[in-house]
Nucleic acid binder design. Sequence first.
DNA 1: TGTACATCAGTGAACGCGCGTTCACTGATGTAC
DNA 2: TGTACATCAGTGAACGCGCGTTCACTGATGTAC
Lengths: 227, 227
Amino acid sequence: MAPPPTPRQQARAENIVRIKQLALAQLAESGAGALSLRAIARELDIVSSAIYRYYARRDDLVTALVIDAYNDLATALESASRPSRSPWRQWVDTCQALRAWAVHEPHRFSLLYGTPLPGYEAPPETIEPAGRVAVALLATAVSADPLDTRAIPRALAPQLDTSFTALELPVRDRAAGLALVGALGQVIGLVSLEINGQFVGGFEPADTLFTALVERTADALRLPTTR
Amino acid sequence: MAPPPTPRQQARAENIVRIKQLALAQLAESGAGALSLRAIARELDIVSSAIYRYYARRDDLVTALVIDAYNDLATALESASRPSRSPWRQWVDTCQALRAWAVHEPHRFSLLYGTPLPGYEAPPETIEPAGRVAVALLATAVSADPLDTRAIPRALAPQLDTSFTALELPVRDRAAGLALVGALGQVIGLVSLEINGQFVGGFEPADTLFTALVERTADALRLPTTR
DNA sequence: TGTACATCAGTGAACGCGCGTTCACTGATGTAC
DNA sequence: TGTACATCAGTGAACGCGCGTTCACTGATGTAC
């Protein structure tokens, strides 16, 4: 039984929420590289040094934002995948949820999958939430059974085994695992191209394009269309 | 017949080269957001205001770097595609050239396909070199003839037609065009995941993974294996 | 070929702004007896 | 329940650093006659 929070603890928790909100607003406006503790303090109506009560270093705040973003994205994907639907449908729905999240919060998507921040090294505690996203997306497609007539290269087999074991994703075989990595790369790539503006003038809005492509991938993975 | 360059013109051209070199070094070290005209001037042993003789605004320098990067990448792709080889082979070779370029110069790849710089708007003159890259990559796969049993959505047809007409890429049909966009998204996505460190611990080095996937895409596009 | 003039690369000082982080401190809140 | 003490959020000043951009200027280079 946790003791009830003291007013001080509660104020602290609320301030952390506010700090993150302001940080996200900055992220959206000026990018992650320009995240400024001083600017956050200013908007909090707090002297600049007081921020250090909450995050000892700028990078600690970035880490908090990264972890939150992975978790929010994973949750969005998980709740998009309705178990009553066929794997084919679940895959398409989940991909669309990923795109929707990314289009809605492009700066947070870029924080996760965009250019690494110079000087920032993602600490180990980001690995688990990052995995949650991969699992949430690929779990809908574990039943994949692609036609694949080529042999898996010798060097690739252990990489595939290690990765899917670590994620606890029971894929059918290595060919299926490989196809899943390809599908993941495609989804992330298409979303990146869209939110980075590479489709401007050609495929905007890109929802039809995106849906058509993830459906074809679902076909290529030969995902069951019935539950 | 162009007149021979004066010493002054020559010095100017050389300085522009040096400025770009120093800018690229900064890009690699601190990211595009931290590109600093003052720092460049310092390394050039020039007073900070003198830089404005060369680039009137910071963004003009960024634009020059973007255009150079697109052109260098396009050239790398073009020279990787040997016409004596089969389309299947050309596609795989070109994709590998793209990955090699990106792995060798990740900061330049990120400048093109990574998170947009806050406040920087790519001017129209970047469109043509950006197209050169798309053409260099996709031209190797114009003979694609994927199995595709689904109808192209109504909203998608004009987008596909416009895009491939603009690039002057004579794809077989819309299904092939759609598959090519999917392939492009996958290649960019995989390379982005790799250079942004998302494969760390799982698929590093990623060359075997990458090759296996572009080969399978070449299969799926049913590219001819003979010239 | 020589001279007068125009061009323009580079100078140096300044404006006004931003940042992260440390430090000794005040004073309200929380806790242990 | 009351009091003494410990905790710790927030203060305010300071350190040392960075940036883009403007401006009037010097003096070497280029050019037109």
